Amino acid sequence: MSCSKPSIRPARPFFSSGPCVKRPGWSPEVLKEALLGRSHRAPEGRAKLKEVITRSKSLLAIPEEWRVGIVPASDTGAVEMILWALGGQRGVDVLSFESFSGTWAKDLKDELKLEDLRVLSAPYGQLPDLAQVNWSRDVVLTWNGTTSGVCIPNSESIPAQHDGVVICDATSAAFAMDLPWDRLDIVTWSWQKALGGEAAHGMVALSPRAVERLEQGAVRPLPKIFRLTNKKGLIEAIFEGDTINTPSMLCVEDALDSLKWAEQIGGLPALKKRAQKNLSVVTPWVERSDWVAFLSDDPATRSCTSICLKIIAPWFEDLSEEKRSSAVKYMTKLIADEGAGYDLASYRDAPAGLRIWGGATVEAEDIIALLPWLDWAIEQTKEEFSS
């Protein structure tokens, strides 16, 4: 196959998986009402932080009795504060099938040194056998593998009744997929995934069962930025807008803009529809291609946000691992140099390949415009790397 250089470029050639592209129509002007030069603990600051919590809870249809709060250090900080607070109270099963879920497994094993820990693993592109999970234990799972393009297929994967707490890292699933709140206990996410928000802030949602477990107390000392409880129990102020540390009010304003946009276009159903459309325009192109395939072989577990692709051209598969990585860098640089697409390489720990962010802030028309550039770039890369 010989491809000439395409003439049409994406209007917004931004396909990074975090921070993700801003919502359509965004400009710095939307930040003009940011509460800058003021304390986040002033009434106005608290009001804006509380508004992020309220709008997030409403948009995601989180049950009324759940607590939602803003916490430090993005989704990573949100997950870690829960692992450090609850890890070791009872036995833990953790699903490990891509980079970040692998990090949670490693931290539970090597940093927290849990004695009663089971790591259920699967290679990139696959899920562990969910039938092997013991739901009487605490369970740590990533709903959507940002670096593998694999997601939990449905809510029935988790029993409605379970003795342990289910801790769900949902950072690239929130605002794009249905989360079964009646089957989860702790859910974390960040503003920079799905809504295109700025970095450094995470969010955590706690069911009443999770609050009860947290109030039992951690089995180890916790640093200040991990503390959701004190001697009196849950620190309720955190869930009313009193953050643990100083937040960026510029980032808060940006998050509010994204949440308002999501509400205006139709809420979670509209966000999901946009993400699913983005996957739907990639699927037929992959099916027609002789050089690329989804990293996830099972359509039921295929992510609509982190669309991860593997290169299956024989000449590419014949390369060493180091050469494959170099070939992907060469290919994605060709596209970036043309201004046709940025940040398209797979995550550094994942198999060498491509990743297209397909969350709701991405326009399907931009992905459609990108795909011919991928066909063109792989031909140029073949000429450079095949013997």
Rank of each mutant, 00 (worst) to 15 (best):
G18Q: 03
S101C: 11
S27E: 14
P63D: 13
A78W: 00
C20F: 00
V79S: 01
A122E: 02
A42Q: 06
W84E: 07
G69A: 11
S56P: 02
F97R: 01
I82V: 13
V119H: 00
G25I: 01
E29P: 01
G87Y: 02
P28L: 11
K106P: 02
G77E: 08
R55G: 08
E115T: 15
E65T: 15
G102Y: 07
R118V: 14
L86D: 07
A78M: 03
V71L: 08
G69K: 09
M81H: 12
D110T: 06
R67L: 15
A42N: 10
I53K: 05
R118Q: 09
P123R: 00
S99M: 09
K106L: 11
L49Q: 07
E98G: 01
S74D: 12
A122M: 05
K32C: 06
R23A: 11
E29T: 10
E115I: 11
R67T: 13
P24S: 08
S96V: 08
W26M: 00
K109M: 02
G18C: 09
D116R: 08
W104A: 11
K106M: 12
D116L: 09
K32G: 04
E44M: 08
S27R: 13
H40R: 03
A122T: 02
T54S: 09
L36M: 09
T76R: 08
D110V: 05
S74P: 03
P72D: 09
A34Q: 05
R90W: 04
A47F: 00
L35N: 05
D116P: 07
V30F: 11
V71W: 13
A105P: 02
T54N: 05
T76N: 08
G69N: 07
S58D: 09
G45N: 14
V119P: 00
H40L: 04
A85C: 07
P28H: 03
D107V: 14
L83A: 07
T103G: 02
Y124P: 03
Y124D: 01
A47L: 03
A42H: 12
T103E: 04
W66P: 01
K57D: 09
S74V: 03
R23P: 01
G25A: 06
V79I: 14
E33Y: 10
D110H: 05
E111P: 02
M81W: 07
G91K: 10
